[in-house]
Design a protein around this nucleic acid. Structure first.
Length: 753
DNA sequence: GAGTTTGAAACT
DNA sequence: CAGTTTCAAACTC
């Protein structure tokens, strides 16, 4: 297996892999498997991720992902001696892990081979292969966890869990061809991987997990996806994350993922696997091949369709500025030039394209979205309009998907997208851009509270800028690293794909002034994580606003206060006056105290109702804290007007932003990736700032080491449990995860670079 | 929906 | 770095 599969895999990796006879063979075989996997995926997703949206929304979610990942890794290690220390190390970093996973997907064959035949793999096989093997191994664990989780279907879980590592081994045992087939089938349809195909499933599951954890938005989206069948989005995101390593492979993966997402996303939800297969298969199979084609031939219809499809599944703008840069780079490279030095620069970095991507600059997702528009549904509306994207699906889905896309996935995607893909995307995007502009002027004020209505669709930000042209941090969309979309009521908006160059330049300028301008404002320190781990009851105070607030009249009790909005307490760095932040006052008083005060004040002000709610919530939180990890926001918060909703979360923005600063040092890149999804670092209590960020990022490489990240995990975990009221098992599982894997250290971290 | 308040972002 | 202005979100009516 090793030799042939590898060879094929290696060959495949390159853009031309489709050309390889092996690929063709696989393609021919691929159609087979779609059927079962769906079921599994659903159960898995629904079960494991049923957690409440609020939880997911929290940026912290990601940490869990990492934690899981880490765990998996550990488990894998334990379970499978085969995995080399190196592999572990690789896995350790969140991004690396992601990358690996993506590679695994890309090189599913390799994975299968390796995982199944890890022994042989070790040597010659490309690193990715090793990593893949690891993933495959790890995946089982994730499955186990999930299975452990309340939502998990016993049967499936049992199967998967039982198969667990063994499953991966089995898969490895299978012929490489089979593995590929499975892989393709999985990627394409999502559905139906057999347990035997555990490799794939594992990958997917892992990916999904990763995604979920990666960002709050993602988590939500993930939920939806899970409900629907997750696979697509989750896979996407996963793949996206993994992409970085090999652009070509990544591109394939992206395509596949996109296809899957699109196909599954739409059809999967309601349609039986088969139906999904029909359409999906068309896309997926074609896509798999097409991907390669796309790489070679930019802007083919197929590509567009794929992209479009993907976008459909996703939601609109996930733009990462990085993506845009990437696209540009690609386009530049392909056709011409180099539209912007920055782009070229990034691209150059790109020998490790991923790196460039990571740092990324680009609004790619938006571009993709535009592609969608281009393609078929293609309206920006549909595209931009999250809702539009999810015609069939319930509204709930929308946000989630969007989140997924936007949040973790987007950035990753963007980064990951191989140049090949990018080209087509770009082309499409351009056209779309045009359209997008038109849209911009559309709805004057749909905005703001859609998010609230939607639930938390922070991912979907809608700005109302009138003078800033959406090119300043005043603009939430811009600040979040996303393009403005139809729902935005902004005027003279330049934050659109059409003006990508302008956007990028502006971003650069802003970043030059303040490298952290696009970084998450709220950071959770390692302390918080440790606190959570040690004492679930304890509320982590470590989460803090990066710069602190400067409130004078709001008493840090309203969203005017960024700390409050971010769901974190005020810290020393805050210059606020009369701080009464319920999440923690500057003076150090706990949120409870603040609450008490708030209550009194509220009473005074007639806000009694609110105060009571808060107190209740807090009380609940306190009670729950034991169970929950505690994040400032916590599950209970929902009752309160969570600050998250609008800005605090900006998972997306953060994500995009961070990654967005592609030009900026790799550091940022790493940070952003890490931070975004999950946590936003900040000084443990006050001044973690960049240094810590950096540290964290570095730590990212070693997942275990990096525990710092955040409580968010706790939240997520807890929240799902709480909300779900799920079986104890699930809680236990999650708790374990949290404890064991404190933070989400960094799947994504830029460690690669 | 319009107007006000607020504090971050941007500017000087 | 501090002060002022600009800006758009958050909030109120």
């Amino acid at each position: 297996m090793d030799t042939p599969d590898r060879a094929t895999a290696n060959n495949l990796n390159p853009p031309k892999f489709e050309d390889s006879p092996v690929f063709n063979f696989l393609n021919s075989l691929s159609p087979i498997k779609p059927v079962k996997s769906v079921h599994i995926t659903q159960t898995f997703s629904s079960i494991s991720f049923s957690s409440p949206p609020s939880v997911f929304t929290s940026p912290h979610v990601n940490p869990n992902k990492e934690s899981r990942f880490l765990r998996r890794h550990n488990l894998l290690d334990t379970s499978k001696p085969k995995v080399t220390s190196e592999d572990e190390n690789q896995i350790g970093s969140g991004e690396e892990a992601l990358t690996d996973s993506t590679h695994a997907c890309n090189n599913s064959r390799e994975l299968d081979k390796k995982s199944g035949k890890g022994t042989s793999i070790g040597d010659a096989s490309i690193e990715p292969a090793n990593e893949h093997a690891k993933f495959s191994i790890e995946l089982p664990q994730t499955l186990k966890y999930d299975s452990g989780s309340p939502g998990y279907d016993p049967i499936l879980c049992g199967d998967e869990a039982a198969t667990g590592v063994a499953g991966s081994h089995e898969a490895s045992k299978k012929d490489s061809v089979e593995g590929e087939l499975h892989f393709h089938g999985i990627c394409q349809t999502q559905q139906k991987i057999d347990i035997t195909e555990s490799d794939w499933d594992n990958l997917i599951n892992n990916a999904s997990d990763m995604l979920i954890f990666s960002s709050p938005n993602v988590s939500e989206a993930f939920k939806d996806l899970m409900n629907k069948q997750l696979d697509p989005s989750g896979r996407l995101s996963n793949f996206m994350t993994t992409l970085p390593e090999s652009s070509t492979n990544n591109s394939r993966i992206m395509h596949i993922v996109n296809q899957v997402a699109s196909g599954s996303g739409h059809e999967n939800e309601d349609h039986p696997p088969e139906s999904g297969l029909a359409s999906d298969t068309d896309h997926t199979q074609d896509n798999t091949v097409n991907v390669a084609l796309v790489a070679s031939n930019p802007c083919e219809k197929m590509d567009d369709e794929h992209v479009y499809v993907i976008h459909r599944g996703i939601r609109r703008r996930c733009l990462d500025f990085e993506m845009a840069s990437v696209r540009r780079n690609n386009s530049d490279g392909n056709s011409n030039a180099s539209s912007s030095a920055a782009k070229s620069d990034e691209r150059n970095t790109g020998g490790d394209s991923r790196r460039c991507f990571l740092p990324g600059i680009g609004l790619h997702l938006n571009a993709l979205a535009t592609l969608k528009e281009h393609g078929g549904m293609k309206n920006e509306k549909s595209f931009s309009g999250r809702q539009a994207n999810f015609p069939s699906t319930a509204s709930s889905l929308l946000p989630q998907e969007h989140h997924l896309l936007l949040g973790p996935a987007p950035s990753e995607r963007d980064l990951e997208l191989p140049e090949n893909e990018i080209q087509p995307v770009e082309d499409c995007s351009q056209s779309s851009h045009m359209a997008s502009e038109d849209f911009n002027q559309n709805s004057p004020k749909k905005k703001r509270r859609k998010v609230e209505i939607a639930g938390e669709s922070e991912s979907c930000k809608r700005c109302n800028c009138k003078k800033s042209k959406c090119l300043k941090l005043y603009c939430e969309c811009f600040a979040a690293g996303v393009y403005c979309i139809e729902p935005c009521s902004c005027q003279d908006c330049f934050n659109k794909p059409i003006h990508e160059d302008t956007v990028l330049q502006t971003r650069k300028q802003i970043e030059s002034r303040n490298p952290l301008a696009f970084a998450p404002k709220v950071i959770r320190s390692a302390d918080s994580v440790s606190e959570i781990v040690d004492d679930p009851n304890k509320t982590p105070a470590s989460a803090r606003h990066k710069r602190g607030c400067n409130c004078k009249k709001s008493s840090c009790l309203k969203k005017y206060c960024e700390c409050y909005q971010g769901g974190v307490g005020c810290s020393i760095s805050c210059r606020c006056e009369g701080c009464k932040n319920a999440f923690g006052r500057k003076d150090g008083s706990a949120g409870i105290e603040a609450e008490a005060e708030e209550e009194t004040e509220a009473l005074e002000k007639g806000e009694v109702e609110k105060a009571s709610q808060k107190t209740e919530i807090q009380n609940i939180e306190d009670n729950q804290n034991s169970a929950l990890p505690t994040t400032p926001l916590r599950l209970s918060r929902p009752l309160l007007p969570l600050p998250f909703s609008s800005k605090g979360k900006p998972p997306r923005s953060f994500i995009a932003t961070i990654s967005g600063s592609g030009l900026i040092a790799s550091q940022k890149l790493a940070k952003p990736n890490i931070l975004r999804p999950q946590v936003k670092f900040e000084k443990p209590h006050q001044t973690v700032a960049e240094d810590e960020m950096m540290d964290i990022i570095q730590c990212d490489s070693s997942p275990m080491a990096c525990i710092k990240t955040s409580s968010p995990n706790g939240k997520r975990i807890s929240s799902p449990n709480c909300e779900l009221g799920t079986s104890p098992t699930r809680r236990g599982g999650r708790k374990l995860i949290l404890q064991s894997i404190p933070s989400f250290p960094s799947l994504t971290p830029g460690p690669h670079h």
